[in-house]
């Protein structure tokens, strides 16, 4: 059981969180212009990176959606960012 830092609630048990995908998977906008390939990449292609990862999580108990830096090897949860406080500035979520 890991401890994740919710930007709103502080460290909480992993079971309270829901995985929202890799950060930076930007949603291709303009449905007329987006190619099949771009859309398929957005829907299905994931880096599934070994080691440091940047991910979107939702804290189900308070509803906060945020970005977390986490290591997929040693499970260190480095830090998290609220989306409204710049966490979303680098094209993080959808």
């Amino acid at each position: 059981m890991q401890l994740f830092p919710c930007p709103f609630c502080g460290p909480r048990s992993e079971s309270e969180f829901h995985f929202g995908g890799e950060a930076g998977n930007r949603r291709p906008e303009g449905f007329r212009a987006v190619t099949d390939g771009e859309w398929a990449a957005y829907l299905h292609e994931r880096d599934n990176r070994r080691g440091p990862a940047s991910e979107i999580w939702m804290h189900m108990t308070c509803g906060e959606v945020f970005r977390m830096e986490r290591d997929t090897v040693h499970h260190g949860a480095v830090r998290s960012f609220a989306l409204i406080e710049g966490g979303g500035d680098d094209g993080l979520a959808h």
Binding site: G20, I84, A93
Partner: peptide
């Protein structure tokens, strides 16, 4: 509810 919250925070001005 979770779907609405996620899109609200991710795409709209909360």
């Amino acid at each position: 509810h979770a779907l609405l919250e996620e899109w609200r925070q991710d795409r709209f001005d909360r």
